Amino acid sequence: MKVVDVAVGVIKRDQEVYISKRSDALHQGGKWEFPGGKQEVNETPTQALIRELKEEIGIEVTQALDYMLIEHDYGDKRVRLHIQVVDSFEGEPAHLEGQISRWVHIAQLSDYEFPAANVEIVKKLQADYL
């Protein structure tokens, strides 16, 4: 089974991170996620993240720091998540593709339902920043 490489951005400002709700029509639809998207051929995870965040939420990333790597098998799909913390950017995040999105305090992330592959990100953020 093919592994899909995904660039994931934890957009962080003070003690809050920016999350959005996946469209019900998508894989893992209706759950919350950190913005990002699939890495294209000949693209590094950082290049993919910069492109995706500009397309999806309209920000210009000025700094992205490698945070963690997660490989997860959903049974019908395998993903490799390249997670980076983005705490330096220009513009104000706003979902350009119509999804519901919001800033959430790191302590409150546990109140939201994330895809299984994202649960470790929430745990690590809460361990590192609370």
Rank of each mutant, 00 (worst) to 15 (best):
Glu92Gly: 06
Asn118Tyr: 15
Phe34Val: 05
Ile83Pro: 09
Val86Cys: 04
Ala107Leu: 14
Val61Ile: 15
Ala7His: 02
Tyr67Lys: 14
Ala25Gly: 13
Trp103Ser: 04
Asp128Glu: 15
Pro45Cys: 02
Lys77Trp: 09
Pro115Phe: 08
Glu120Tyr: 06
Tyr18Lys: 02
Pro45Ile: 01
His27Met: 03
His95Asp: 12
Glu120Ala: 12
Arg78Thr: 13
Val104Met: 08
Val85Asp: 03
Lys21Gln: 07
Tyr112Gln: 06
Lys31Met: 10
Ile100Gly: 11
Val6Tyr: 09
Phe89Glu: 13
Gln28Trp: 03
Gly9Asn: 05
Leu96Glu: 14
Thr44Phe: 03
Glu90Gln: 08
Asp5Ile: 07
Leu81Ala: 15
Tyr18Ser: 02
Asp111Trp: 03
Leu65Val: 15
Leu125Arg: 04
Ser20Ala: 00
Gln15Tyr: 05
Arg102Met: 15
Glu120Trp: 08
Gln39Cys: 08
Val85Met: 06
Gly91Cys: 01
Ile100Trp: 10
Gln28Asp: 08
Ile57Lys: 14
Ala94Leu: 03
Ile19Ser: 05
Ser101Met: 09
Ser23Ala: 00
Lys31Gln: 12
Val86Met: 07
Ser20Pro: 00
Arg13Leu: 13
Trp32Glu: 00
Gln99His: 15
Tyr18Cys: 01
Ile70Thr: 11
Gly30Met: 02
Ser88Cys: 02
Lys38Phe: 07
Arg13His: 10
Trp103Val: 04
Gln47His: 03
Gly58Phe: 04
Asp87Val: 08
Pro45Asp: 02
Val3Leu: 10
Val4Ser: 09
Ile83Glu: 11
Gln126Leu: 04
Gly9Ser: 09
Trp32Ala: 01
Asp66Lys: 15
Glu113Phe: 10
Trp103Phe: 04
